[in-house]
Computed example of a mutant assay.
Amino acid sequence: MSTAIKRKTDHIFTLMEKMAAGEELYAQNERLHDELGLEGTREAKERKIRRYLEDIHDLYGHIVVTEKRRKEFGDRKVTVYRVVDRERDVAEVFRRFIEHHDDLSWLLQVVREHNPRLLSGERKRFERLLKEEEDIFLFIGSPFETFEEGRSKEIFRQLKTAVKNREYRDIFKCTGAVEKSVKCLKLIHMADNWYLAGETEEGRFRLFRVAFIERVGYSKNRIGYQPKILDKYAHVFASLQNPMTLDRPFETARMVASAEVAYYFKEGMKPFFPTQKFLKELEDGSVEFTVSFTQPMEILPFVKQWLPHISIISPEKLKIELEKDIRSALETMEK
Rank of each mutant, 00 (worst) to 15 (best):
K6L: 14
L15I: 09
M16P: 03
A20W: 05
G22I: 09
E23C: 13
Q28W: 07
Q28D: 14
N29T: 08
D34M: 14
E35G: 05
L38E: 08
G40S: 07
R42V: 06
K45H: 06
E54F: 07
H57F: 11
Y60G: 00
T66W: 06
T66K: 15
R69D: 12
D75L: 12
R82D: 01
R82A: 06
D89R: 03
V90G: 00
A91Y: 05
E99S: 10
V110G: 07
V110E: 14
R123S: 12
E132I: 11
F144N: 11
S152V: 00
E154P: 01
N165S: 09
I171L: 14
I171P: 13
T175D: 15
V178H: 08
V182K: 05
G198W: 10
E202S: 13
G203S: 07
R204P: 00
K220W: 03
N221M: 09
Y225C: 06
P227T: 04
D231A: 11
K232R: 14
Y233D: 04
P249Y: 01
F250H: 01
M255K: 02
V261T: 07
V261D: 01
A262R: 03
Y264D: 03
T275A: 03
F278P: 07
L279K: 06
E281N: 02
D284M: 10
S286R: 04
I299D: 01
L300N: 01
P301E: 05
V303A: 06
V303Y: 06
S314C: 04
S314M: 04
P315Y: 10
K317W: 15
I320K: 15
K324H: 11
R327D: 09
E334K: 15
